[in-house]
């Protein structure tokens, strides 16, 4: 039990949470404006198509209307833009969470649920629990470790539980079915149509996918080097899926970034930026952001600030 607790609360860099939050909130803006817009269009659909989910029945959520989808869409954008500043992380973070989850509910309560978007709820709900987190904070915290671990677990659960769903709904014969053929016939791109002429490729792919999904939790037992390689392999898989059938599990891809040393990448980018002419001009005028050492002047760097 103690080993499980120390794994769940492994101290991790506070700055990693700061970077992941930036990516999550930037993604929310891109997502509601460009990637997942069916919720907005449901504001134009007749309420006869509305089919409340359990969440909607419990919370008495109404069918979509033009006003509701506009409020949720722009609520997401404004709250996420403010959250990008790093201020009021709990208030703004949970406002983003409520708006985004409700907007997804509007999208999914018309008869079709996109099954890849549930794990992102965990990121939106738990990343604010870390409190203030600054990009240049050098410390590690258990609260950051917990939030990152929870995001990692939700992302990996997506793979394992989707294999479980294949066994539950498709049965053992799923691996020998023509499910991937069906996907390519219905949504295949020119890049993928040749696969239909060589049917064993899609057949074998189903075996590989099932094996990869069932063994996905092994990622937590790997060394850091192999863990990053596993994440890279999953990104390659998702890139291939997008090329073949134009389906990408966008929020899930953001979640997978929780496995990576994001604060190191951010530092590297900032160093590169500082060497450019514009970057030097920027810092000479005191416009550089987040360069203060932790423990000195930023609210986030007060010992213990916002953690708990």
């Amino acid at each position: 039990m103690n080993r499980l607790a120390s794994w769940l609360f492994t101290p991790m860099p506070v700055a990693r949470v700061a970077v992941l939050r930036l990516l999550v909130f930037a993604f929310v803006i891109i997502d509601v404006l460009f990637l997942h817009t069916s919720g907005w269009y449901h504001g134009q659909a007749d309420p006869v198509w509305y089919e409340p989910l359990v969440m909607g029945e419990m919370l008495h959520l109404p069918p979509a209307s033009v006003l509701l989808v506009e409020v949720l869409k722009w609520g997401c954008v404004i709250a996420a833009a403010l959250a990008l500043t790093g201020r009021a992380p709990r208030l703004l973070g949970w406002t983003v969470a409520v708006c985004w989850i409700w907007y997804q509910y509007v999208a999914f309560s018309y008869g079709k649920v996109d099954h890849d978007r549930a794990d992102f709820v965990v990121a939106l709900a738990l990343l604010p629990t870390v409190g203030l987190a600054h990009l240049s904070d050098k410390r590690r915290s258990e609260a950051a470790g917990f939030a990152l671990r929870a995001v990692q677990m939700a992302a990996i659960a997506t793979y394992f539980l989707s294999a479980w769903a294949k066994l539950r709904f498709g049965g053992l014969e799923w691996v020998n079915s023509a499910t991937m053929v069906r996907a390519v016939v219905r949504r295949g791109t020119p890049w993928a149509e040749w696969l239909l002429e060589i049917p064993f490729t899609l057949h074998w792919f189903q075996w590989v996918l099932m094996a990869a999904e069932l063994t996905a939790p092994v990622i937590f037992l790997l060394s850091e080097k192999w863990r990053r390689r596993a994440v890279a392999a999953w990104f390659a898989f998702h890139a291939m899926t997008y090329a073949a059938i134009t389906i990408a599990f966008w929020p899930h891809l953001v979640m997978m970034l929780a496995f990576l040393p994001l604060e190191e990448y951010a530092n590297w980018l900032r160093a590169r930026w500082g060497r450019t002419r514009i970057g030097r001009w920027w810092s000479e005028r005191g416009l550089s952001s987040g360069a203060e050492p932790p423990g000195v002047s930023t609210p986030a760097s007060r010992p213990g600030a916002g953690v708990g």
Binding site: V113, A118, S162, A165, F169, S177, T179, R182
Partner: peptide, 13 residues
Amino acid sequence: WPFSPWRMFATSQ
């Protein structure tokens, strides 16, 4: 949802 089964392409064709 969001606790629904992750059934992307889960049926057998």
